[in-house]
Design a protein around this nucleic acid. Structure first.
Ligand code: SF4
Ligand code: SF4
Lengths: 131, 131
DNA sequence: CTCAATTAAGACCAAATAGGTCTACTATTT
DNA sequence: AAATAGTAGACCTATTTGGTCTTAATTGAG
């Protein structure tokens, strides 16, 4: 339905919050949950996914937490979405797997897909955070 | 997951097929189903939705069928998607209803949404069909 | 060394959405 | 009248998404 998922949306909220504070500060899931107003288990899940996608760096154990893996100005919206939902593909045929029905409109979708990725790549977390 | 639905995809295939033929010719669901290779009930559903959305014109009764409501060059991809899935809104906050959690990243999503709609509005059915 | 705090991994279930089919009805042509 | 074709909408199934939970592994502090 041409919409990002809630998990992705939460990811952006969390990342923007982290980008607005001292870069070295470790944020733990519990504090973030309280700060953002999203239940802890969900926050925890999102942070885990973002870490697996290389957007966040984690530090385990007591006094552990998460921090941005790169400066906010170097993390693009496209990267974040890909980390959470996988490659951006507006149709089956604009993904790597493709589509067996290789129809006439496919090239147009490729164009649209490229344009969308372009828009998302031109926007960094720094742009999105404090504004 | 940032993807158009299958019904929408079918819609584009059907419309492109129709745009590639005589504008005045009426296409009935059965023939279109055979031509495109999508089951009749599904084709029928898609055509109905496109008609309700004002993209197609229908003609009931024997020898009836569907034809484009406007020249292919005047039907944009954005229009078609809206007709099938409703307004393009990449997040809750970029739709008319909005989102109660009015967060800091919302303005950025508005920008992205506008860019996406722009890309979709700049592409007509004529562009997408015979190309 | 032990304990508490904290992330990691993934199972799990419930809710929502999407995909697809079907039936009954209406309109038009012959 | 009969045949053809669209209209409306219910309906069920499959898939995806949202969210929670449990169990482990890791690390710092006392
Ligand atoms: S190839 Fe045609 S059918 Fe397959 S995804 Fe692309 S547009 Fe849709
Ligand atoms: S306002 Fe914030 S939370 Fe609500 S949809 Fe927009 S980005 Fe997501």
């Amino acid at each position: 339905m041409l919409r990002i998922t809630k998990i992705t949306d939460y990811g952006f909220i969390l990342l923007a919050h982290m980008a607005n504070q001292d870069k070295e500060l470790l944020h733990n899931a519990k504090d973030l949950s309280a700060a953002i107003g999203i239940p802890l288990p969900t926050v925890s899940k999102v942070l885990k996914i973002l870490t697996q996608g290389g957007i966040l760096q984690s530090h385990q154990g007591s006094k552990g937490g998460y921090s941005l893996a790169k400066p906010a100005g170097e993390i693009t919206a496209a990267e974040i979405i890909e980390a959470v939902e996988g490659p951006v593909a507006i149709t089956d045929c604009s993904s790597s797997e493709g589509c067996e029905r290789n129809c006439v409109v496919s090239p147009s979708w490729q164009q649209v897909n490229t344009a969308v990725i372009g828009a998302l790549s031109g926007l960094t977390l720094a742009d999105m955070s404090n504004g």
